[in-house]
């Protein structure tokens, strides 16, 4: 059964360029563009990993991260922030709330995202978790 990734991203362009290589590697990618729906889907879909943008309509990805960590159903989920906002304040908050990684969209080559995801999901070995700016 393919591993499931929940992608919470309101920008269709970013969703397209990052979801194509993930789908090509066989991941089941579920897309949500609304933050509030993202929390619902994280509970109902039980994804293996969540890719989470920060600037979302109506709510912030950081608030979603905090909520997911506080809820028993999603407190252990693997959550990767995937954003173009790399301020120290956001990175520190994400780490404090328990993000597993913090990736900058403009720095990640889309075709290399599946390898990073595989490492986080324990499907491949890697250098560990870090903030990639």
């Amino acid at each position: 059964m393919p591993k499931k990734i929940l992608f919470i991203e309101d920008d269709e362009g970013f969703f397209n360029i990052f979801s194509v290589p993930l789908k090509m590697k066989g991941y089941d990618v579920v897309h949500v563009s609304d933050g509030a729906l993202g929390v619902e889907k994280a509970i109902s879909e039980k994804p293996d990993l969540i890719l989470l943008d920060i600037v979302l309509p109506g709510t912030s990805g950081l608030d979603i991260l905090k909520e997911l960590r506080e809820r028993p159903e999603s407190k252990d989920a693997k959550i990767v922030m995937l954003t173009n906002f790399g301020s120290d304040e956001n990175i520190n908050k994400a780490m404090e709330y328990g993000a597993n990684d913090y990736l900058m969209k403009y720095n990640i080559v889309p075709s290399e995202l599946p390898d990073k995801i595989a490492i986080l999901m324990g499907e491949a070995s890697g250098a560990g978790i870090k903030v990639t700016q």
């Binding site: 362009g13 970013f14 990052f18 290589p21 173009n84 990640i108 889309p110």
Partner: peptide, 18 residues
């Protein structure tokens, strides 16, 4: 400015490689 440029760059990269 970076957001759409990142999408153009990312999509071009994917098309070139895959």
């Amino acid at each position: 400015l970076r957001a759409p440029l990142s999408v153009v760059k990312g999509a071009s990269d994917l098309l070139l490689k895959s």
